[in-house]
């Protein structure tokens, strides 16, 4: 199977504007993600997890090295779910989703279908500020999945939510993920979340950050949050992190 996302020998250094201090985040990072694979990136704060997502999303450029997103027969479409839903408060839920579908050149029905898929069909005309935190994040998920992305990036998507809500949304993401194979990268602080959702977990550590451990999770989907094997693996990863 060919890699659909290839990060090769990537270096990235940030220079603090005020102090002028240089901080090398990556020095020759390599990572391959295959079609249909969801890779979770875990690690302590400051190990470059979000920077990695920003580099892949094109929000940052690497100082050197290459990042290739390979699509089967078109330029890969990219969806991203952020820690905060990042909605336009002045637009109703549906229009927030339509922003992405319009930009991707997809018809408006896709936006409505996506809202329906996340269980918010009747909130299409509601403004984000009347929605709960979980509902707002559902709109963020709908926006990302509405464009039928080839590459899906999750940047700590449920860390701002209470555990019960986060658990429902993880199940929702699992269902959406099962619809068709994509390339996925999930940055999370939560090893249990990583073991539940991912096919593979990589542990980033050090400065500059490098991959210090890698775990393949072969449990078939749909998975159950209470699965004993997943919980045991999660404990192993926690052991590596602390």
């Amino acid at each position: 199977m060919t890699a659909a996302l290839e990060v090769r020998d990537v270096c990235k250094t940030f220079v603090h504007r005020q102090t002028g201090r240089r901080e090398q985040i990556f020095d020759g990072l390599d990572l391959s993600v295959e079609h249909g694979e969801l890779v979770a990136v875990v690690g302590a704060s400051g190990t470059g997890k979000t920077t990695l997502l920003h580099l892949i999303a094109g929000l940052e450029s690497p100082d050197s090295g290459t990042i290739e997103l390979g699509g089967p027969d078109r330029t890969p479409r990219l969806g991203m779910v952020f820690q905060q839903p990042r909605l336009f408060d002045w637009l109703p839920a549906l229009q927030n989703v339509e922003l992405a579908t319009d930009a991707a050149g997809i018809g408006k029905p896709a936006a409505r279908d996506a809202l329906e898929a996340v269980g918010l069909a009747e909130y299409a005309r509601s403004y984000p500020s009347v929605l709960s935190g979980g509902q707002r994040q559902r709109v963020g998920l709908a926006r990302a999945f509405a464009i039928d992305p080839d590459v899906m990036l999750f940047d700590e998507p449920f860390s701002a939510l209470d555990e019960l809500t986060a658990r429902r949304l993880r199940l929702l993401v699992q269902d959406l993920w099962l619809e068709r194979p994509r390339v996925g990268l999930l940055v999370t602080h939560n090893p249990l979340e990583a073991t539940f959702l991912a096919d593979r977990i990589i542990v980033l550590s050090g400065s500059p950050a490098r991959i210090v451990a890698e775990h393949r999770i072969d449990a078939p989907r749909p998975r159950q949050p209470e699965d004993d094997d997943l919980f045991a693996l999660h404990r192993t990863i926690v052991g590596q992190l602390v």
């Binding site: 996340v118 269980g119 929605l131 709960s132 935190g133 509902q135």
Partner: peptide, 15 residues
């Protein structure tokens, strides 16, 4: 996949 409406309501932060 569609989740039930009661599920959504439970999440709602306000009546």
């Amino acid at each position: 996949m569609t989740i039930s409406q009661s599920d959504v309501r439970q999440e709602s932060g306000r009546p």
